[in-house]
Computed example of a mutant assay.
Amino acid sequence: MPLIVISGFPSSGKTKRTLEIKKFLEKEKCKTVSVVSENDLLSKEKNAIFSDSRWEKDIRGALKADVLRLLNKDDVVILDASNYIKGYRYELYCASKQNKTTQCLVHCLVPIEQAWTWNQTRLEMEQYTREVFDGLVMRYETPNSSNRWDSPMFSVLPEDVPPFESLYDALYLCKPPPPNQSTQTQPLSSTNFLFELDRTTQDVTNCIISAQKTVVTGDKIRVPGVDELLSLGRKVTLAELTRARRQFISYTKMHPVEDSMKLRSLFVQYVNTTLG
């Protein structure tokens, strides 16, 4: 199924836009549409979940698993969630490439205080607390149409009608991005693959941290054994690299590569994409 990723601040009208798009595709284009909704998993515990990084990570994992289960080339999957992490949106993009299907992003572009006002109009049990709301806004990594995983992107203001025909064209009249090595599922031929994955990504991380101590900020970094240079443009922290490493390991466990020697190059490419 072609994938529509909805993204926006909490209480920015994401579910409303999801239902509008679903209605159009079903009634006007006779398509089958499946919605994977964050709200179905959050229930009444949203403030507790978004206050605990482990629970929040579990929710993201469950949403992605549902999307992966439904993806194919014919019908449509809409992921109705904040999708505020750039690396997470990249993982969804890779999943679309692997399934050789198209994807687009709908950005619900709402001013922060307007979203907060809409939040206060909800039933009390469905509202975000101010602390949780502000935390989600602060962590929100705004989509950028120049990033291939956020493109094509359709920004929808509160007063706008979603560009239904353009959405349909992006899903059904455009070719899906061609798969590459990083998005191809390969057989796990080595029993020590996980060991190699952990060791290789740790070696690259250590190399980057060490190189940043001597190079001028903005200079490119060469990782031994990798042709592609790291072009980060800034000094990245160990915490950022560790987070990227965890995300890469999590994805690669599900999509192992046959040649473990390529792991180093793939991780460098991933760091360039998510942190560059």
Rank of each mutant, 00 (worst) to 15 (best):
V77L: 09
A65H: 13
V67W: 08
A62D: 10
L68A: 15
L92D: 07
K64N: 10
L71A: 06
D58K: 15
L68R: 14
V77S: 01
D66W: 05
G61Y: 07
D74E: 15
S82V: 03
S82G: 10
K73D: 02
Y84D: 10
L63E: 01
N83E: 04
G61P: 09
Y93G: 03
K86N: 08
L70T: 12
V76I: 15
D75L: 00
L71G: 02
L70N: 02
D58R: 15
Y88M: 08
D74N: 14
D80L: 10
L92T: 11
Y90N: 10
G87T: 12
D80N: 12
I78Y: 04
G87F: 04
D66Q: 15
D74L: 02
D58I: 13
A65N: 13
L63M: 13
Y93D: 02
L79F: 01
R89N: 01
L92A: 07
K57D: 12
L63D: 05
L92E: 09
R89F: 03
S82R: 05
L92W: 03
A81L: 09
D58M: 14
K73G: 10
V67L: 05
R69W: 05
V76E: 07
A62Q: 14
K86F: 12
K64R: 15
D66I: 03
A62T: 13
K86G: 02
